[in-house]
């Protein structure tokens, strides 16, 4: 049987939105303040997934205008994802417990 993408509309979409919203709330709610900056940066990285949507739009562009806007969209989205990743990783890399190697 040929696979076709499920169309996510109406209540299915609403359920997805609701569960995702609670997930975000729960994850951040228990985070110590020490990690707030990296976490804001980390969540900033995660909405970089928008690049995937921009890719779809650009690949399906059917006029020059759409190509230009799509190009800008992918460019910005890729910047969001890559930049968010790099700065988050750099910050988190630095968190180290009291090391025993000096002792």
């Amino acid at each position: 049987m040929e696979y076709t993408t499920t169309i996510l509309t109406g209540f299915v979409a609403l359920y997805i939105f609701m569960l995702a919203a609670f997930t975000g709330f729960e994850i951040i709610g228990r985070v110590p303040a020490i990690l707030h900056t990296p976490l804001m940066s980390g969540s900033n990285f995660i909405h970089g997934i928008v690049v995937v949507g921009a890719l779809w739009a650009l690949i399906n562009a059917s006029s020059t205008t759409q190509q230009v806007i799509g190009f800008v969209g992918v460019l910005l989205g890729a910047g969001n994802a890559a930049g968010g990743y790099v700065v988050t990783e750099r910050m988190l890399e630095m968190f180290k417990p009291s090391d025993k190697k000096k002792g």
């Binding site: 993408t5 996510l8 995702a20 975000g24 709610g29 909405h47 997934i49 995937v52």
Partner: peptide, 22 residues
């Protein structure tokens, strides 16, 4: 939602609520 893309829906909404709480 517009693009029928669950990855964007989930990631976007998780960040939307986490960001609001933050």
């Amino acid at each position: 939602y517009v693009l029928n893309n669950p990855a964007l829906m989930i990631a976007g909404m998780v960040v939307g609520s986490a960001g609001t709480l933050l």
